[in-house]
Design a binder for these strands. Structure first.
Lengths: 350, 350
DNA sequence: TTGAAAGCGATACCAC
DNA sequence: GTGGTATCGCTTTCAA
């Protein structure tokens, strides 16, 4: 329960607190101390005493004095969503290696909670924010940027030009899924989406329609928009499949994992089989996609890249060194295929 | 980019900084201010000025002075593991509602990183730690408790009596899985586990053996321990299944999600089917378990409860109000079954 | 290379 | 109810 301060170390080592501060903040350079104008012997003694006494820097004090906290905050809508969880893990890792601590939080799709969280983070002097915003979150986030906290948006876009952005090209993702199915020889391709108009979904829909039109298949475009509610959605998909059998539909694009799950459920209920009755292109990740080989084709977002780009961009913004161009990063989704004969599934482009 | 301090508010409102501090820390009680000995009118004026000026408390300063940070740290081995992600989400939620901020981090099964993280968290003056420790993590965590930071262990146990614990009864989980299979009429039940001797696994193994012995089936006990490496494990399971067909094995207990995935892979490779050739009891959660109805029986840990109990216990420990008995919480795993005919899968006990 | 001293912004303690 | 002021532990000039 002891509290060892910089003074204790200074006294014990017979030097001034300044020296101790220098030593404790010195970065190793190839060999010994570099950035610190301290006699190596003194430094060694200080280090030794610090260790013996079990000294640990009080970050609150350091942060108060220096104005830097060496921490950032990451706010997503749901920490338990595998999509965000993976991004968070990667960001935490990068941050750790860069000497940053990260505070995570879930906004749970509530602009109010987001606003409250932003206040909290501002109070913690975080140096930057990475946010997967919920609808209506712009006010809260503008608050952050207005007090000088750089903010990077991921996953979903929001109006406002003070933000950095690392987004995925969902139009392209929709196009890619559709073109892949063309490549497999299918033309009667449909998409099942939700009624709620979030951009990630509408962009995928748009990509699908575009690709169909470009292929001269505008008459075959069938874009189903079902209810978001789980029970309604389940039933909706079953109905669509029933009709699809009559229509002779060849393939479905399922632009979210949940929609894919409802679709597998519908297959079971109707006693259908995947390569025989329909072909699927799914989105995101699921154990089910990988159950058999070749895997069920699925479009994934480059999670590690999202993490890396957003963290890098944030650091640039913290250093006020990001150009307007650098502040808008667009990444490409990947289509995962294959895996037969002991070969790992690979990404492909269409 | 302005910085509004308590002094600015005090000056503008024509009161002392003390008053402002009182007001800013006052908790609402039913009606107006309660715990603060300030004239309601003055308080209102201060609040008003604070809002107008856009004042936000500097937590670093508050923490430095008061010694309290209103933050806790949660360290798991892998943030992206759905098991931990779900626990983290729940803890974050509870913490948020209790006015705490939480710092998350992954130890990635490295005692060194864990030690470093603990140092960092200590430096941040976190009031407590919730940790899913990696092997060899006891030294690092004892460091935390030795400087007076209450620590609660989840998922895995570690020696040391300064820790609080919220663990799941894995022996019982193993027993439960086995008894369920008895109940289905099976006797030739085997378990596939790993060679690495982590307690969560050995406990489940122990439960299986115990149940088998109690049923007079000691001669049927077949506990396979395969390599942890993915490729080796995949091959291992395939071999086991081949032999099992000859032996007439009826059921397998797969005590981790990954082992279950390898097993599904083996079924595919060998062209086997689940209810026909073998029965499975799996562990954890996977989309695959829920693919068909009834669901594949699987044992899950009470994640929300782990989160709730560990956070509650930690708070008790922070207030030095936890008895030795309260410091050791054991939770029961649940067996999930059913879901046929539109009925939701439910938990059962055996 | 080294050290003295001035704060960072809030809270705690004590007077009034 | 209200206000002064001494810290909290550290970083940061500025001199020596």
């Amino acid at each position: 329960m002891k509290k060892v301060t910089i003074r204790d170390v200074a006294r014990e080592a017979g030097v001034s607190v300044t020296l101790v501060s220098f030593v404790m903040n010195a970065k190793m350079g190839k060999d010994g101390r570099l950035d610190c104008p301290v006699n190596p012997n003194t430094a060694a003694r200080v280090l030794d005493v610090a260790k013996r006494l079990g000294y640990r820097r009080n970050n609150a004090a350091a942060s108060l004095r220096s104005g830097r906290s060496h921490s950032i905050a990451v706010i997503v809508s749901d920490l338990a969503n595998p999509f965000f969880a993976e991004i968070c893990r990667n960001i935490e890792n990068l941050a750790y290696n860069a000497g940053y601590t990260v505070i995570f939080a879930s906004s749970e799709e509530s602009p109010e909670k987001l606003a409250h969280l932003v206040e909290t983070m501002v109070g913690y002097n975080v140096e930057g924010l990475i946010v997967a915003p919920c609808l209506g979150g712009e006010r809260a986030l503008e608050r952050a940027t207005s007090v000088g906290i750089p903010t990077v948006l991921i996953d979903r876009d929001l109006p406002g030009d003070s933000f950095g952005r690392v987004l995925v090209d969902n139009v392209d993702a929709g196009v890619m899924a559709t073109k892949y199915l063309f490549h497999q020889g299918f033309g009667k391709i449909e998409m099942i989406s939700y009624k709620l108009g979030v951009t990630s979904l509408t962009d995928r829909e748009h990509g699908y329609s575009m690709a169909m039109e470009d292929a001269g298949l505008e008459d075959e475009i069938r874009l189903h928009r079902i209810e978001y509610d789980a029970d309604a959605a389940k039933k909706g998909v079953i109905e669509i499949f029933k009709d699809a059998l009559k229509r002779g539909t060849e393939a479905f694009i399922l632009p979210t994992k949940k929609l894919a799950m409802y679709s597998f459920n519908a297959l079971n209920v109707l006693g259908l089989n995947l390569p025989k009755d329909f072909s699927f292109v799914c989105f995101d990740e699921s154990d089910i996609y990988d159950l058999k080989k070749p895997v069920i084709p699925h479009v994934v977002q480059p999670l590690a890249e999202i993490a890396e780009k957003s963290f890098t961009l944030l650091r640039k913004m913290v250093d006020s060194a990001a150009t307007e161009e650098e502040k808008n990063v667009t990444l490409k989704a990947k289509l995962i295929l294959g895996g037969r004969f002991g070969v790992q599934p690979t990404e492909a482009s269409f």
